[in-house]
Structures are given as C-alpha cells and as structure tokens.
Amino acid sequence: MPPTNASKAHRRTAREHLAGNLVLMRRERGWSQEDLALEAGLHRTFVAHVERGARNISLDNIEKLAVVLGVETYCLLRPSSSAE
C-alpha cells in the first residue's frame, strides 16, 4: 500500500533548502543580511524574507546570491546536512 500524505515524513521544499543554505553560507562569511543584499544588488528586507522562506524568489535573484557567495547556483537549492 503506497504511503499517504499524512504518513510521509516532512520533506523539505526547495524554498526551505534555499533559506537554510543562504543563512548558513552568509553566516560562514560573517556577513549581515545587509552586506549580502548590497553585494547582490537586492534589498535587505528581501533577503530577510527569502531567509525566512516567506518570499518566492526568481532564478535570476538566486543566481545573483550564488555569484556573490562564490558558489554554483544549484548549491543554494540542494539538501545540506548542515542546514537541516
């Protein structure tokens, strides 16, 4: 019998992976949300909303964040044991 939605363990969404990875990578660099936003050409409150998973972010903006963090874009979306 296939598992039902109620019996499945919570699977993190891409938005949750992005939020966790973004916070982790930003903190590893000792940057504030404002530092990251300024470098990426985004607003600080937008970065804060993305880190809380409250905003739907475009691929273009994910790429901007990845570039300033010095990682491949997919790294922000992949599951990370340290961000879980």
Rank of each mutant, 00 (worst) to 15 (best):
A40M: 10
L24I: 03
L24M: 13
A37K: 03
R11N: 05
S80Y: 05
D60G: 08
A40S: 13
G41Q: 13
N5S: 04
E63W: 09
V50H: 02
Q33P: 01
H17Q: 05
A66I: 10
R44F: 01
Q33V: 11
A83N: 14
L18M: 04
G20S: 03
E16F: 00
R11Y: 03
N61K: 11
A54Y: 06
E28P: 00
P79T: 13
L77W: 04
G70T: 07
L59A: 14
L69D: 06
C75E: 14
A66W: 05
W31F: 05
P2T: 06
R29D: 00
M25L: 15
S81Q: 13
R12G: 03
R26P: 12
Y74L: 10
R55S: 13
L59D: 04
G30F: 05
V50L: 04
M1Q: 08
L65W: 05
E28M: 04
R78M: 11
L77C: 10
A66F: 07
P79E: 15
W31I: 05
R27M: 11
L36V: 00
E16Q: 12
F46D: 06
I62S: 01
T13L: 05
V68C: 08
E34G: 07
L36T: 00
N56Y: 02
A83R: 12
Q33F: 13
A19S: 09
D60Q: 12
R27Y: 05
A9C: 11
A37E: 07
N61I: 11
G20W: 00
H10I: 08
A54F: 09
P79C: 11
A83F: 13
S58E: 10
S7H: 08
E28H: 04
A66V: 10
H17D: 01
R27I: 09
A54R: 15
E34C: 08
A48K: 06
Y74Q: 09
R78W: 07
A66M: 09
H43D: 14
M1F: 08
A9P: 15
N21G: 09
E63S: 14
L76T: 05
K8T: 06
H43P: 02
S58Y: 04
E72P: 09
L65M: 15
E16A: 11
R11W: 01
L69C: 06
R44G: 02
T45W: 09
R29I: 04
L18E: 01
N21V: 08
L65Q: 06
E84C: 12
E39H: 07
N61E: 13
V23H: 11
K8Y: 04
A19H: 02
A37T: 05
S82E: 14
A9T: 14
R12E: 09
R52D: 10
E84H: 14
S82A: 15
V71Q: 04
E63A: 15
L22V: 03
G41K: 15
L76I: 09
S80Q: 12
R26V: 13
D35G: 01
G53L: 02
D60I: 11
V50C: 08
R11A: 10
M1A: 14
T73E: 13
H43N: 12
N5W: 01
